[in-house]
Computed example of a mutant assay.
Amino acid sequence: MKKFENWEIFEDIATIKITKTIKEQLEIYFEFLNSENEKYNLTTITNLDEVYRKHFFDSLTFCSKLELNNQKLCDLGTGAGFPGVVIKIFFPDVEVHLVESNNKKISFLNQLISKLNLKEIYTHSQRAEIFAISKKEQFDIVISRAVSELNILLELGAQLLKINGYFVCLKGPKIDWELQNLNNQNYKLGLELRDRQNLDDKIIGVRVNLFYQKLRKTPEIYPRQYAQIKKKPLGK
């Protein structure tokens, strides 16, 4: 079986040392993702190099901007484990919570975690807005990749963050349109945009990572019921 060789792309993200364990775990991840993909409808990307670049590498691009060390992290709408499981593989000291409302994907994740022998990583089969109410201010970092538009996503997850914690939004080329729709209403959630990371990789394309810091408590009215959020998102 062909194996991934271009490990230098990961080392370029930050000071990440690629260990034998990391390589072995990513190989298991790739093989299990492909073998179970049709059953769980996990991804349209199945080519070896593309999975490593467009899923594994893309899950870590934010790491050069934010230190990961012994924090408690929540991945909202994790799907097949991107970025949460990838973060756990590279940063085993981080406690990771994976939130996903699709029970089939939760089943896949539970099997994957067992195969990878990962510790302190937990799955939650819940909608994000319900999970946020039950776990207020319990996380140092909330992260989400390709889930909802910004004016919906921030409301779903802000309540989870501790004061001074970071909400990391891994976004694509339409981010300026999303920011315009948000219309600076993140302040209602106690969030302030601290940094923006622009990337243009020849393989994964345009990526924009936003880093919101929670400076004040999120009002108790947030998150609203999902139907209300969809009907009238922040900024509209």
Rank of each mutant, 00 (worst) to 15 (best):
209 N>M: 00
215 L>D: 01
184 N>M: 02
174 K>M: 13
95 E>P: 05
216 R>E: 03
119 K>N: 06
59 S>V: 05
218 T>G: 03
57 F>L: 15
173 P>G: 11
153 L>K: 01
69 N>K: 15
205 G>S: 09
64 S>A: 12
21 T>H: 03
229 I>V: 05
37 N>M: 12
3 K>G: 02
39 K>A: 09
108 F>G: 09
101 S>I: 14
114 S>A: 11
113 I>H: 05
82 F>T: 01
55 H>P: 09
172 G>D: 13
31 E>N: 15
97 H>P: 07
154 L>H: 12
185 Q>I: 01
43 T>I: 04
83 P>V: 07
146 A>R: 14
174 K>D: 12
111 Q>T: 14
135 K>N: 14
208 V>Q: 02
50 E>C: 07
143 I>Y: 02
187 Y>F: 05
162 K>Y: 05
54 K>L: 14
133 I>Y: 05
155 E>G: 07
156 L>T: 12
71 Q>P: 11
42 L>F: 08
94 V>L: 04
100 E>D: 12
163 I>P: 01
94 V>E: 04
109 L>I: 08
188 K>E: 09
216 R>P: 00
2 K>F: 02
125 S>D: 10
96 V>N: 03
14 A>C: 15
98 L>A: 07
101 S>C: 08
194 R>D: 02
216 R>V: 00
9 I>V: 14
226 Y>Q: 04
212 Y>V: 00
112 L>C: 11
10 F>L: 14
59 S>Q: 06
134 S>P: 01
100 E>Y: 12
218 T>W: 00
142 V>H: 09
221 I>G: 00
231 K>N: 03
110 N>P: 13
74 C>Q: 06
184 N>E: 10
49 D>C: 09
189 L>V: 02
231 K>P: 00
7 W>T: 14
77 G>W: 15
169 C>P: 04
90 F>P: 11
67 E>H: 07
19 T>I: 07
153 L>E: 06
